[in-house]
Amino acid sequence: MFPQQLINGLTLGSVYALVAVGYTMVYGIIQLINFAHGEIYMIGAYLAFTAIAVLHLPFPAALLLSMASCALLGVAIDFVAYRPLRKAPRLAALITAIGMSLFLQNIAQAIWGANTRPFPFEAIPKFFYASAFSLVQVGGATVATVGEIPTEVAARPDLTIVLQISWLQVVILTVSLLLMVGLHLIVHRTRIGTAMRACAQDQMMASLVGINVNRVIGFTFALGSALGAAAGVLVGVYYNAIFPTMGYRVGVVAFAAAVLGGIGNVVGAILGGLILGLAEALGAAYISSEYRYAIAYAIMILVIVFKPSGLMGSPAAERT
């Protein structure tokens, strides 16, 4: 049971990490907790749903379309809601972010309805739900299988499943990993990535070397939103349920993950996401699934009490 919860936790955690990265990057550059970020995740799921149900796109195309659309949406939100408040007290932008979050939730409800919807089943590749790898115990022996468990083994009455990983979990873990590697390369190996790091360290100086700071901030929103949308699509398929408030729940946990890792630090956010995903899965298995959020928050509070800057945060990140 433990290995199974570990894999479930990592799957969930990699999704939290994708969302947490968006919170932390925006905070790193403009010191704003973008409360509307969870709603990007929700809208990402709905856009993929629509792309599949209405445009009949295959799953990978729907995922990419959703990420691209949400990148634009992120830029638009920054332009309309946050950019005019760049020089205003930070509280003004924070309240605007909360307002934007509610606004997007209600828009989604108006467009897609308040009911929980399943992903269009026929559009999801069938192999997603097949077993990719399993570890079973039969008659005292442990058998590892790539692919489905053979029927003669599955029929055995003394069968215990130790671990079973579905292709969907493999897809979620792989896509998350690829996106995070891609993000790392963008931030550390490209011109715009260097500009992002420069803006996070000293915005005035960034403008003095010729960087258009607003454009870099817009790019940061686009990047974070694309990752958030990917997470929304993956979770929508994983739980096979999308609803207008799904972003709020994940947003709260992902925000906790970003704080836990040290807000402003991308690696910290990924680490925080994985920790909270694992804690949620293990907590639900061994304590009670009712306490999943309580556990996530207890961990966050403990870390903040003993290391206020978070796991990877430096005290210098606590600029005012």
């Binding site: 260097t194 100086m205 070397v209």
Partner: peptide
């Protein structure tokens, strides 16, 4: 006001 967390080469390229 150099960028403290960027390398010398990155500071110059910026």
């Amino acid at each position: 006001r150099i960028f403290p967390d960027l390398t010398v080469a990155e500071n110059l390229s910026l």
